[in-house]
């Protein structure tokens, strides 16, 4: 009885993870713009792999291997959103025609980003003062 429930639960979790992975892959190919594609690709590392690993954990029970899988989920959740965030920020910083590509945007943030890249000479000494 308990084995059946566990099997069904793990199947459900793995199936949900598979759905997330598939939709993310479709999104990577369908979306036209870099920021939208990042939105789709970040889904793979966070939700997709998390659900798949949870399914595997439920299927194997609580062993050392499943504890390692939990740690893997934790590290993926720590690192993958940050890398997506950095890619998105770089895109906002270096794209000069953001108006054409992005329909909705936080104009104040974008202005702040664009201005931050200009004053190189002023930015360097402030860092130095912090160090001192």
């Amino acid at each position: 009885m308990i084995d059946t429930i566990r099997l069904i639960a793990s199947l459900l979790l793995t199936g949900a993870g598979l759905f997330c992975l598939l939709s993310a892959v479709v999104g990577v190919y369908r979306f036209r713009y870099a920021l939208s594609r990042i939105h789709a690709a970040a889904l793979i590392d966070t939700v997709g792999i998390c659900l798949m690993l949870l399914g595997v954990i439920v299927a194997t029970g609580f062993t050392v291997a499943s504890a390692k899988m939990l740690v893997v989920i934790g590290f993926l959740w720590l690192t993958s959103p940050v890398s997506s965030h950095l890619i998105g920020r770089l895109e906002v910083t270096i794209n000069d025609e953001l108006d054409k590509d992005a329909a909705v945007m936080d104009r104040a943030y974008v202005e702040h980003e664009k201005e931050a890249e200009l004053p190189i000479e002023t930015a360097a000494p402030t860092d130095k003062e912090e160090d001192a």
């Binding site: 720590l78 940050v82 920020r89």
Partner: peptide
């Protein structure tokens, strides 16, 4: 080279720094 480098560097990104 440093100026070029700072163009593409994530400039004191809080999220990245905490991580």
């Amino acid at each position: 080279a440093e100026a070029d480098d700072r163009m593409y560097e994530p400039k004191n990104d809080m999220i990245l720094q905490h991580q």
